[in-house]
Design a protein around this nucleic acid. Structure first.
Length: 717
DNA sequence: AGCACGCCGACT
DNA sequence: GTCGGCGTGCTC
């Protein structure tokens, strides 16, 4: 009897492949085993996901598996089933998810090394080679290189096909070898100076919430919860739950969205649980990562904490998954394999009959609503009211920095305390305009206004990053003056220097701060008190190791409201809340100033008062009125491609397919996606909306199953 | 992802 | 006319 294996590969391909299992391997070939199998003209590592005596439905000639690597399957049933569901939910590669659940050493990669042949050497001497061939031959003349380095050294874009052509001609020889991941340098987490743990008391609301969850955990069934309340109180609940998990020798996963919050958690996990906790993050060295994985796989880690990818840790006897700061969109992985770790946590917890606890002090509207409706919301008492912000109406002020803010900054300077000024706009001005004819220089490709960067004296397109020298005169009417509009961080920095010539001011944006070195230099300088005022974009707020400061100023947060996204208000609220957290709560004289043209918008007003319920009430009203999630189901389908014509055709195919479902499916678009051009490709978006989630599932499966194109799908709720 | 095949502009 | 650029499609 012939045995067949269905195999998936860690490639960005949402598809499985069938192979014949040779007699020699029939014993070892099991679902979850790693195999080496021929794919195209290479041998690739893949994962068996199913073994059966039935081949595929369609008649295709099958190849044989070359080798079954594992005697015992490396991937457990649980992980197999979890990743299959996750992949189906996101139209994302199953094989890539499986690779994510293995230590780097277990992911076999094939690398190609190129050697110059004698014939190639002769051809180089005799100058018989084309421009690119010559480059390759010259580089390989020194010594053999991998294709990866060959591309770097020669700058030839399509190096693999060139190498293949040269190999055919006998100019070079390409040897393939299987390799495990290469060594990486360790990046330590910058710990912020120890902050006072306010309000860590276990009050009755903490005990009550923990009691409810513990009760559900005792039953050993899947149970979701949403823990709404201040951070320290949530932390207290989490630790009660974890202690219980460890007591009955089960395991817990603890997810956080970003490294910037990792420091304190890592500390308290290590302090509180000793050797039981493993923290995995992107900064770990290969060796440290390997050790962590060994500890997880030998089931010695009671708690695995980390960012979204920790979700794939192969822990058995999983009893609890914590997803803290649920509102944070860092739970979305935007590169292949695409997924939403919040949805993933739900799938994994329900598959392994574990308790699931989402937590946040500023929940996403969709999740909060659902928790309320389905009766799994647990609210923790608010402790000390956090510091509120002073809101200044921009329209009544002249200049970039209001009187009120200037005096606040002066106060901080006088006391020798640090301040941060946020403005989410890079460069000096977001556009230039001609005061005589009103012309605004635009990017030829993206048709958006060009930003002016004064330091480089250039015009830059913030969409496609193309830049050009500043234009001296208006190209329309020849006027010699072009005026800046829409002030950016550079302009704020300039204005601050004018107002406070004696102050030490630095600017933190992606233009000025490039790479780890710059970053550390500025942040360490700020930590050490060598900078009085730090000006930055929102990027600054997401850095690890920022010390609490005595004045936070936020300029024009309303820019975030302009995004064409139904969650714009929520994003604005979250961004404001996030920046405001950096204020030094222990310093009674510290303050937060928000300068805005929309002081009455509900997200700005509520954020300034740190009043999430007020924001939620207003936002839910708006969502209901507009029939947005959570009152409908919405999927954003994003298509990527270089050729606009075929892109548009496929977008229309999808829209047409969805239209066949009739009135129950609302189709918005196709339209160009905000974000326009990415890496030489255009993006087109189709939004589908239904009332019932099952219908949306069905439509997506039907419409996206067959149409082959690089796509990403995000669903709400 | 990697690689082959196929179609268009600038060169021996 | 070819070379080589990129765009499209396939890999069991």
């Amino acid at each position: 009897m012939t045995l067949f294996a269905e195999v998936v590969f860690p490639l960005p391909v949402d598809q499985s492949f069938f192979y014949v299992v040779p007699a020699a391997w029939t014993g070892a070939a099991k679902a979850g085993s790693r195999v080496m199998a021929p794919l195209g003209n290479k041998v690739q590592m893949g994962f068996i996901v199913q073994v059966s005596d039935q081949g595929p439905d369609r008649a295709i000639s099958l190849k044989e598996i070359i080798e079954v690597i594992d005697e015992v399957p490396q991937i457990s049933e649980d992980i197999l089933s979890f990743t299959r569901q996750l992949s189906a939910a996101h139209f994302s590669s199953w094989g890539e998810f499986l690779a994510a659940s293995l230590p780097p050493s277990a992911v076999v990669k094939t690398t190609a090394k190129a050697f110059l042949t004698e014939k190639g050497g002769d051809a180089l001497k005799e100058k018989k080679l084309s421009r690119d061939e010559k480059k390759v031959a010259e580089v390989l003349g020194e010594k053999p290189y991998s294709l990866f380095f060959l591309r770097k050294k020669t700058g030839v874009k399509n190096i693999s096909s060139l190498a293949a052509r040269m190999e055919k001609k006998g100019l070079i020889r390409v040897e393939r070898e299987t390799k495990t991941a290469r060594e990486k340098k360790e990046i330590p987490i910058l710990l912020p100076p120890t902050q006072l743990e306010l309000d860590f008391s276990v009050d009755e609301s903490v005990e009550e919430a923990a009691g409810v969850i513990l009760g559900a955990m005792d039953k050993g069934a899947f149970a979701p919860f949403y823990l709404s309340g201040p951070g320290p109180k949530r932390q207290a609940v989490y630790f009660l739950l974890i202690r219980k998990i460890l007591a009955c020798s089960k395991k817990a996963l603890f997810l956080i969205p970003e490294l910037s919050q990792a420091g304190p958690l890592q500390e308290s996990l290590e302090k509180g649980l000793g050797g039981q906790a493993v923290f995995i993050h992107s900064g770990l060295s290969e060796r440290a990562r390997e050790l962590a994985w060994q500890k997880i796989r030998s089931q010695k880690a009671g708690v695995v904490a980390g960012l979204r990818s920790a979700l794939f840790s192969p822990v058995e006897r999983l009893g609890l998954i914590i997803v803290d700061d649920e509102h944070d969109d860092s739970y979305l992985q935007l590169e292949s394999p695409l997924y939403d770790a919040r949805r993933g946590a739900w799938l994994r917890a329900s598959g392994q009959r574990a308790a699931l606890v989402y937590g946040s002090s500023t929940p996403s509207v969709e999740a909060f609503y659902r928790a309320q409706q389905d009766g799994y919301l647990l609210t923790l008492k608010n402790g000390h009211k956090p510091k509120q912000a002073v809101v200044i109406d921009d329209k009544t002020e002249k200049g970039l920095i209001s009187q009120r803010l200037a005096s606040g900054l002066q106060g901080s300077l006088d006391e020798g305390k640090p301040s941060i000024v946020f403005l989410n706009r890079r460069g000096y001005a977001s556009f230039l305009f001609c005061p005589r004819c009103g012309h605004i220089p635009k990017c030829g490709r993206c048709r958006v206004s060009l930003a002016y960067h004064k330091k480089e004296d250039r015009l830059v397109c913030h969409y496609c990053r193309a830049s050009q020298p500043k234009i001296a005169a208006c190209p329309e009417c020849g006027s010699k003056v072009l005026e800046p509009g829409g002030a950016g961080v550079e302009a704020v920095e300039e204005e601050l220097r004018r107002l406070f010539p004696q102050a030490r001011i630095a600017c933190f944006d992606s233009d000025r701060v490039k790479g780890q070195k710059d970053r550390d230099k500025v942040l360490q300088g700020f930590q050490a008190g060598k900078i009085d005022i730090l000006v930055g974009t929102q990027w600054l707020a997401h850095q690890t190791g920022l010390p609490p400061v005595s004045l936070i100023a936020i300029l024009n947060p309303e820019a975030l409201l302009a995004f064409p996204d139904f969650r714009a208000a929520q994003k604005t609220y979250l961004a404001l809340d996030f920046m405001m957290r950096l204020v030094d709560a222990a310093d009674k004289r510290s303050e937060i100033v928000i300068q805005t043209a929309f002081p009455d918008h509900h997200s700005i007003r509520a954020a300034a008062r740190r009043d999430y319920p007020a924001f939620y009430r207003e936002e839910v009203r708006f969502r209901r009125l507009m029939n947005y999630p959570p009152f409908s189901c919405l999927a954003e389908v994003l298509l990527q491609g270089r050729d606009l014509r075929s892109l548009a055709q496929k977008a229309r195919d999808i829209a047409g397919c969805a239209a066949a479902f009739g009135r129950g499916v609302e189709i918005l678009g196709p339209a160009f996606s905000p974000g326009a051009t990415v890496r030489g490709g255009k993006r087109v978006q189709v939004i589908l909306r239904t009332q019932k989630p099952e219908l949306l599932d069905q439509v997506l499966r039907e419409c996206l199953g067959r149409i082959k194109i690089k796509k990403s799908v995000w669903r709400y709720p």
